[in-house]
């Protein structure tokens, strides 16, 4: 028990890293996923096929392979990466972790948002077209907001998965919650104490984020609730 209290500050420090990596990847992944989803529903072959290949690869392979490909795999191209000035980034485990998680969540989110876009009622699109909207304006004002509302519950799940998946970055030496728990337990042999403490912190984070996302869901769907104030 003492060892848990003793290592609590470091575990909480790890929690900050976990949240930081998750937040960055979710944000960047979201920014990537929206255009990818729009491209994915396009009828133009040169638009949807590359997105299809990208999502197929990143959803069909384990995240651990993707992390290793980027972190260890980049070493094979060190000379090239050095010559274009990118090696500085790829030798940092933190950067590779965020890059891998971003690409992974972008692939999953793009598929979720694609479902959302396809779920937008035809009538709403036709009404907007009748009002003279088209192209980007139609997407910005009508399709994307509606698609996001439809996709929100599934997207919530994806964010929760990403938070949990971020524990894999400890394998490439990033000191997140899992990383801290592994390091301290390997030194002190207090395995179950540390891993149970880490599990408890994850539980709190997961259900905390779930609560926040539920609040957002209620808010963006507020207009659907009749007679509630």
């Amino acid at each position: 028990m003492e060892i848990i209290i003793e290592s609590l500050p470091r575990l909480l420090g790890g929690a900050v890293i976990t949240l930081e990596i998750t937040f960055l990847s979710v944000l960047l992944g979201f920014v990537l996923a929206i255009p990818l989803a729009v491209m994915r529903v396009s009828r133009l072959r040169c638009l949807w096929m590359p997105v299809y290949a990208f999502t197929f690869y990143f959803r069909g392979t384990p995240l651990l392979v993707q992390i290793f490909l980027i972190y260890y795999g980049s070493g094979q191209f060190q000379v090239f990466l050095d010559s274009v000035g990118l090696w500085h980034f790829f030798k940092s485990p933190w950067f590779c972790a965020v890059l891998a998680l971003t690409l992974n969540t972008a692939a999953y989110s793009a598929e979720i948002f694609r479902g959302g876009i396809q779920g937008v009622p035809r009538g709403e699109v036709e009404a907007a077209q009748a009002c003279g909207m088209s192209g980007l304006l139609l997407y910005r004002r009508i399709v994307i907001p509606k698609a996001l509302r439809i996709a929100w519950p599934a997207y919530t799940n994806e964010v929760i998965f990403l938070l949990q998946a971020s524990s894999l970055v400890s394998i490439i030496t990033v000191m997140d919650i899992t990383g801290v728990a592994r390091e301290i337990s390997a030194r002190s042999f207090a395995f179950y104490e540390l891993f149970l403490a880490a599990a408890a912190i994850y539980l709190v984070l997961v259900y905390g984020i779930l609560w926040i996302f539920k609040r957002i869901e209620n808010r963006i769907n507020a207009y659907l609730q009749v007679g509630q104030h």
Partner: peptide
């Protein structure tokens, strides 16, 4: 469902 797989494997 609220705990990462990796933590449970190590645990």
């Amino acid at each position: 469902r609220g705990i990462p797989e990796l933590i449970l494997i190590l645990l």
